[in-house]
Amino acid sequence: MKTLFICAALVLSLFAKEKVLYVYNWSEYMPDSVLQDFTKETGIEVKYSTYDSNEAMYAKVKTTGTSSYDILVPSTYFVNKMSREGLLAKIDKTKIPNYKNLDSKLLSKPFDPNNEYSIPYLWGSTGISYNASLVKGKVDSWADLWNPTYKNSVLLNDDMREVFGMALKILGYSANSTNPKEIEKAYVKLKELLPNVKMFYSESQKQVYLNEEVKLGMNFNGEGFMANEENPEIKYIYPKEGALVWIDSLVIPKGAKNIDNAHIFINYLLKPEVSKVISEEIGYASPNAKTVELLEDTVRNNRMIYPIDEDLKNSEFQTDVGKALPVYEKYWEMLKTN
């Protein structure tokens, strides 16, 4: 009898595990309807929490352990960093038949050759948003943020690599520079910008622009798209020095407790009709080739979401800077506490 009780308890425990999934994602980056429909279809309850930067996500995972979550959504260079540090599990593509729907041009990037650890979720750019009713004159360059006219009026992403990437691009360097002298020059350039900076903020940028708390600044293109939907005076442009381009990917932490459910969830998100809902509501480009075919013309032809080659001239994907990271961190801390 005791043995039967123990076996029953184990079965119940396993069943409970099969019905839950812990997802840690960027804020405003997954429609509630998608999570609800996933639960209806699979019976798997999603425990969902959010972060506002790769650094915040990474710190939380390092603090709480990789078994705390089943799905994370790191950006380009953090996939490389986390896989190199042994924080990610390899993905079993045999459990993801919808992988075939992905656009091959967005696969096997240097940060994860063969996509052993990551599956593209959304991709986009970081450029400039501005309120045309508050900004006079042309805006086409990162350098425009330094215009003294915009004192205490500029938003910068609360993201070390993106902020430094912008300054490095202005100086004519790669946004992925590992040269300490170039990084220091970027810091000096950013110090000159501080009088214009109203805030470092990444969580819900569209609302900051809609509330007219800032006039212009760095912005994720999806946030720019959503703000423009509500107020057409809010524009999004690709700076002539080059935008910062990224892919946010679905990964499974090493030690995840619900690894089968994680694969089920990834496969579900790669359904063309599901990816369509995500891309249209969130305002970022889908890496799903089958999804793009389903999109309304107003979305598929919107250059804020789906840029043409000209828009991405001089742009760069972020890559892991390896041993140069502490140099960035030192100057980032100095910048934020200046």
Rank of each mutant, 00 (worst) to 15 (best):
M1L: 13
T3N: 08
L4R: 09
L4Q: 07
F5P: 00
L12E: 08
S13E: 05
A16F: 07
K17T: 07
K19Q: 14
Y22R: 12
V23H: 11
Y24E: 07
Y24G: 08
W26S: 04
S33A: 12
E45G: 05
T50Q: 08
Y51S: 08
N54K: 01
E55Y: 06
M57I: 08
M57N: 13
Y58V: 10
K60S: 13
T64Q: 09
V73M: 10
F78R: 11
V79P: 09
M82S: 13
G86H: 12
A89I: 05
K93E: 02
K93Q: 08
T94W: 09
K95F: 06
Y99A: 12
L102G: 03
L102E: 01
K105C: 06
L106C: 11
K109L: 15
K109S: 11
F111D: 07
Y117K: 05
Y121P: 11
G127M: 14
S129V: 09
Y130K: 09
V135N: 15
D140L: 06
D140G: 14
A143C: 07
D144T: 06
N152E: 15
S153L: 08
D158C: 00
D159N: 15
R161P: 00
V163Q: 05
F164N: 12
F164Q: 14
M166R: 14
L168Y: 05
I170Q: 00
L171A: 06
G172Q: 06
S174V: 07
N179R: 10
N179V: 14
N179T: 13
P180W: 10
K181P: 00
K185Q: 15
K189R: 12
L190K: 00
L190I: 03
L193H: 01
Y201S: 14
Q207G: 09
K215S: 06
G217T: 14
F220D: 06
G222C: 04
E229D: 11
N231A: 13
I234W: 05
Y236S: 02
I252S: 03
K254C: 03
K257R: 13
D260M: 03
L270V: 05
K271F: 03
E273L: 03
K276R: 15
I278C: 00
I278Y: 00
I278T: 01
S279I: 14
I282D: 01
I282E: 00
S286V: 09
P287W: 07
K290H: 06
E293H: 12
T298N: 11
T298E: 09
M304P: 00
I305K: 02
K313M: 05
E316P: 10
F317K: 07
F317V: 09
Q318M: 06
Q318D: 01
G322Y: 00
A324K: 04
E329V: 10
K330S: 02
W332N: 00
N338A: 10
